[in-house]
Design a protein around this nucleic acid. Structure first.
Lengths: 140, 140
DNA sequence: CTGTATCCTTAGGGATACTG
DNA sequence: CAGTATCCCTAAGGATACAG
């Protein structure tokens, strides 16, 4: 996955996403930062899908390099690092919601509460705006 | 990439998408079927990104197995096969549009016309409904 | 035209030991 | 706790020849 434009396979927007986030793990890291309120390396490490340390470290590094995630030193504990989504990262929320909508519609095993998805289909714009507002508050 | 539920890494909807479509090529095939009006193997083969025959054949087979793509024999030419999106496949359109929106916002090299994306941000629901209608007509 | 089959290479990723 | 460094292995993917 390269990120300097000369190496893109094409200049298609779909392909742009694939080159930025198109692997087995990156989207899961973003999910955890966006919807599960995780902020620390250790928390991200503890996902159901069992990512390993080197992979997580590499993905975070690349996400930071792509300005999707930023890291700061925890003001309450200088030994800890806090990861959070940048605006560019938060802009991925509509994609994540649509993915969730699609999966919960087409995979009966998926664990998304149906009422929420129904509300979402009714009023995408409103719900997205609200969630974005919450997200901004959280990482402010 | 497994598709029988016992082998999922988790039952998260984000992960469901990754297990169904999470590789370097699948989303590009869907893009070509959804937005570029391609229907034949040869047409799909001719994308900018240069997919090879074996990969394309394998992806189409898996997409068919997952009920995202269906194939029929061309009624006008028995030697040809026509691929098209199922309803489940067409349901991916909102995701594709959000991906396009995100990429065209954050990658200046991306080739999506800005006016369209502006209209989309104004009225997601309306535009999605219209595009879905067009898509249904096309594959009817 | 629509694929299969094969060969080969590489990138991605698990496991795990180790460091500041 | 937050990573780095290695080792090793496998799956994914390019190239290309060939078949129905």
């Amino acid at each position: 996955m390269k990120n300097n434009s000369e190496n893109y396979r094409s200049r298609c927007p779909i392909n742009f996403l694939l080159e930025s986030l198109g692997d087995k793990w990156t989207l899961l890291v973003i999910r955890d930062l966006m919807f599960k309120g995780k902020r620390y390396f250790g928390e991200l490490l503890a996902s159901d899908e069992k990512i390993s340390t080197n992979i997580l470290a590499e993905r975070l590094k690349r996400l930071e390099h792509n300005h999707i995630v930023s890291k700061i030193v925890d003001p309450n504990n200088g030994a800890k690092v806090i990861y959070s989504l940048t605006d560019k990262g938060k802009d991925l929320m509509p994609i994540m919601l649509e993915v969730t909508a699609w999966s919960s519609k087409h995979d009966e095993l998926t664990n998304t509460p149906a009422p929420f998805m129904q509300a979402f289909e009714q009023d995408r714009t409103g719900l997205m705006a609200k969630l974005r507002f919450d997200l901004d508050k959280l990482t402010k």
